[in-house]
Design a protein around this nucleic acid. Structure first.
Lengths: 341, 341
DNA sequence: CTGAAAGCGCTTACAG
DNA sequence: CTGAAAGCGCTTACAG
């Protein structure tokens, strides 16, 4: 059943024009070429009839662009990133572009390898998430690549690429303020590695909001296991915290696990707030109060910005910051929203 | 910093040979062409020196293959699929192939759209997960596409493509047997839509193992919310189950939530077993007993099989079935593994 | 507004 | 074993 797929020549023949005209009708380039309306219609009609889909391969070779977007994520196993991938994919689909997925595992070496690959494939633009954990020097390395990029998350130094992020500092303030408002007096912040701007910003927001209260920051490497161990060590010490602001939902889940293992009632003895609003946050018991990161939106906005980057760049596109939102659930309110300390 | 990237002509010039020879050395095709050893070495040396990476675009156009793999998943938000994606991506990387991600949301229409796109892009092979939920007629539709495919999961009817799956029936037997061994006398099966072969097979395994005991199957649409509602309705009726075998971890999490909301102690009053072993399963409290699906392995095996499909197919490659494994945790054993009913 | 033609960077019969 | 050349299916100056 190998039906030969129609080429531009078939369409040209059917419409009685040259392939150049077909191309100009069906693939208006950066500088649109004038074509007579009825000619254009004839071409479109023929294309439709023959079920013609221009070969992205040929087009890419000729026009030096591939119609591909490279999506770099640090870890697909972290539920946050599939959400971003969904947004990127959705946006790309609207632009009729394909998404090449790259999973770096946070290794710089793999990141570089991927960038070379993506460059060789002539991707039009790269959407790079996880750049928040790159140091200044590492970011410098990336500057060697000439491909347009859009970053998700604020990079450690000012770079030439635009980025889209959420206001992590504000989100952290909302979380901390909420814990204080619920009556917590000893709020600890369970942080991820603060070499990441995301984590640094969230810690910053916590510090802001704590004002002159006693700061209590427990730093982990970001994995649930390490978060659990660090927080457990902290609980051995007095005074015991009565509220935890975890820098991510994964860390918050570790905090919930620890509370369960220690038979601490959540939220009465230990209130917990996370960050990210991963899909499972509302399925846990207690359901998790958290700061919602519009991951999907981050992805789709990134694609939007990428469209501009890849196009005839009218100067450096500006970055965008999205608003986080506090989602109040049982881990601070108690079942039914009633929680009086 | 737009360094012109080296082309095959540059390498040919540097090595003092024709571009044909360069191609034959660097990209041995299906039928390898003989080249003198020292010539080959000269070419390789030049390629290395110039940092030459053959353009996948040009190569694809000329050779009618793209070096791309299309990965189709029904839903990236379901934690099971990112695991598969990781395996596929890893395997593809080893083969120096790119992975185009396609998220169908379970809609046939989108699936078809993606297949056309992937065909136009001349992907070498498609790894299709989620085909377990396609009906016989829907699978027929797919037969119209000439691209080689590898399925993840057993399709409803016998098709021309090979598939890799796990033994769902066996996994379900292990889960059910474990619940019975732990002393449960009224085991309910919380199922997903049994139009999916995966769900049908798991229900089948439950039925097998229940032998002549009373069967009690609650079918849901597979989402945690619906699973919660269905199971809740079941709990209103006597006799109350004392064990739940949930067809997926997402459904098991719904069961745990329901138990918490009903103040049923897990596992003493209600033991719960899931299926999939998603990353969070061990982070919950109680930790979740589940059947481990080697999702990563499914992905990498699929790529392995895909390599054969895409190559000069020596007949139809055979399908493979991987072994599931029961992971015993607190939701059936109790903390510390001590659970005596 | 339209077309002939060069060219994108490779692969692969064909000839030697 | 090696090379000249056609061709993959498009885009895009260039000329009219």
């Amino acid at each position: 059943m190998l039906v030969r797929v129609a080429t531009i020549a078939d369409v040209a023949r059917a419409a009685g024009v040259s392939i150049a005209t077909v191309s100009r009708v069906l693939s208006p380039g950066a500088v649109p070429h004038p074509v007579r309306a009825d000619t254009a219609e004839r071409v479109r009609e023929a294309a439709r009839r023959l079920n013609f889909i221009p070969s992205p391969l040929a087009r890419g070779l000729a026009a030096r662009r591939s119609g591909l977007i490279g999506l770099v994520v640090p870890d697909l196993a972290d539920p946050h990133y599939p959400q971003i991938a969904i947004g990127v994919e959705e946006g790309a689909r609207r632009l009729e572009m394909g998404v090449l997925i790259c999973n770096t595992l946070g290794e710089l070496e793999r990141l570089v390898e991927y960038l070379q690959l993506l460059e060789a494939r002539r991707v039009d633009v790269i959407v790079l998430s996880g750049a928040t954990s790159l140091s200044a020097e590492e970011l410098q390395t990336l500057l060697r690549y000439s491909i347009p990029m859009v970053l998700i998350g604020r990079p450690a130094i000012d770079v030439q690429w635009p980025h889209v992020s959420i206001d992590n500092r504000l989100g952290a303030r909302l979380a901390t303020r909420h814990l204080l408002a619920m009556g917590c007096t000893r709020v600890v912040h369970l942080s991820g590695p603060r070499t990441q701007t995301t984590m640094a910003d969230r810690a910053r927001g916590y510090i802001d909001e704590m004002d002159r209260r006693l700061l209590d920051i427990v730093e982990s490497n970001g994995t649930p296991d390490d978060g659990y161990a660090r927080l457990r060590a902290r609980l051995e010490l007095a005074p015991r915290p009565d509220g935890v602001f975890a820098a991510t939902d994964r860390l918050a889940i570790a905090a919930l696990a620890l509370a369960a293992d220690r038979s601490l009632h959540v939220p009465r003895e230990l209130a917990v707030v996370g960050f990210d609003d991963i899909p499972l946050a509302s399925q846990l018991r207690p359901t998790l109060t958290t700061v919602s990161q519009p991951a999907y939106e981050l992805g789709s906005v990134a694609i939007e910005m990428a469209g501009h980057s890849a196009g005839a760049g009218a100067g450096r596109p500006s970055s965008r910051v999205l608003e986080p939102r506090l989602i109040e659930r049982e881990s601070t309110l108690g079942p039914g929203g009633r929680f009086v300390r």
